[in-house]
Structures are given as structure tokens and as C-alpha cells.
Amino acid sequence: MKGSVVKFLLKSAWVLEMLIALFILLVTVVQMVLTANDSLHYLSLGEFSLNEFFASTLNIVVGLEFIKMLVLHTPRAVTDVLLFAIARQLVVTHSTSMDTLLGVAAVALIFVIKKFLLSKEDCTPPPDILGRFLGGHSAQKEETHHE
């Protein structure tokens, strides 16, 4: 009884995560279309801003990385989201020298983590990713993956 309730809750949480990822993907695609439309419009008017274009496109990239993090559940996906979010902040905002230095140090730290602390297993998604979505997986795999 307790095992089936836990299994149901884990499946429900996973389905909700996938729905959220799908919604984020939909919004990201809409943002891509709007960014392209706005960029072409402002280019034709001669009022194009590269800084605003970078802000929009890097937001799209962060959104895509976030979707991958929700789907894959790997430490590598988490560090990738952090890396792109910090890089976006560094490129788009014009902060103080100290903020820039801290951002560069954070990026360097993420690279150190990826190089020395993440194993090959941390970088590959579980083999049953599609199986979980389609319902063809064992309870043991699910419990191991969600611990």
C-alpha cells in the first residue's frame, strides 16, 4: 500500500514536471518568434539594439537549458543552466567591476566542478527517460532514480 502511494506520487510529480517543461517550451518558442519579429522590425526602422537582442536570445537559451534540466535530472544539466544564466547576466547587464569579477569567478568555478567533480555517470541521463514517460519501466528503476 505504502509503496504504491509513493510510486503514484513520484509518477504524478514527474508528469507535472513534464507538463511544466512543455509549457516552458511553448512559451520559449513564442518568445523566439516574437524576438525574430521585433528584431526585423527594429532593423527596418534603424533602431535595432544588440543589447536587447542578446538579452532576449540568451533568455531563450536559458529557457531551453532549464527544460533540459527538468527532463534529464542530471547534475550536468543543472550546471549548464547555472552556467548559461550567469553568462547571460554577464553579457546583458553592465555591472560594476566587482560584479563582473564575481560572475567570471562563478563561471570558472562551474567549469572546475564540471571538470573535476562530475563523473561520466553525472553527465548521462538515466536510460529509462522515455520509458518513464511511456509507462514501461520498473519500480526499482524509478525509486533508484528519484532518491
Rank of each mutant, 00 (worst) to 15 (best):
M1C: 08
K2S: 15
S4V: 09
V5E: 12
V5F: 14
F8L: 13
S12R: 07
S12G: 14
L16Y: 13
M18C: 08
I20G: 06
I20V: 15
I20H: 05
I20R: 06
A21K: 02
F23C: 13
I24V: 15
L25W: 03
L26I: 11
L26E: 07
T28G: 06
V29S: 05
V30R: 11
Q31Y: 10
L34R: 10
T35G: 06
A36W: 15
A36I: 14
A36K: 14
A36V: 12
N37R: 08
Y42S: 12
L45M: 12
L45S: 08
F53N: 04
F54G: 04
F54Q: 12
L58K: 08
V61T: 08
L64H: 02
E65G: 04
F66L: 13
F66Y: 07
M69C: 07
V71I: 15
P75R: 08
T79V: 14
T79N: 02
D80R: 02
V81Y: 02
L82F: 14
L82S: 05
I86F: 05
A87Q: 05
Q89H: 14
Q89L: 13
V92T: 14
V92P: 02
H94F: 13
H94A: 12
S95R: 10
S95K: 11
M98D: 11
D99P: 02
D99K: 11
L101A: 15
L101S: 13
L102D: 04
L102H: 09
G103F: 03
V104C: 12
V104Y: 10
V107H: 04
L109G: 14
I113G: 01
K114Y: 05
K115T: 12
F116P: 00
F116W: 12
L117G: 07
L118F: 04
S119V: 01
K120V: 01
E121Y: 00
E121M: 00
D122V: 00
C123V: 00
C123K: 01
T124A: 04
T124R: 03
T124V: 12
P125M: 01
P126T: 02
D128Q: 06
I129N: 00
I129Q: 01
L130A: 09
G131R: 01
G131P: 01
R132C: 04
F133Q: 04
L134F: 11
L134D: 13
G135H: 05
S138R: 09
A139I: 11
Q140R: 13
E142F: 06
E143T: 10
E143C: 11
E143V: 13
H146Y: 11
E147A: 10
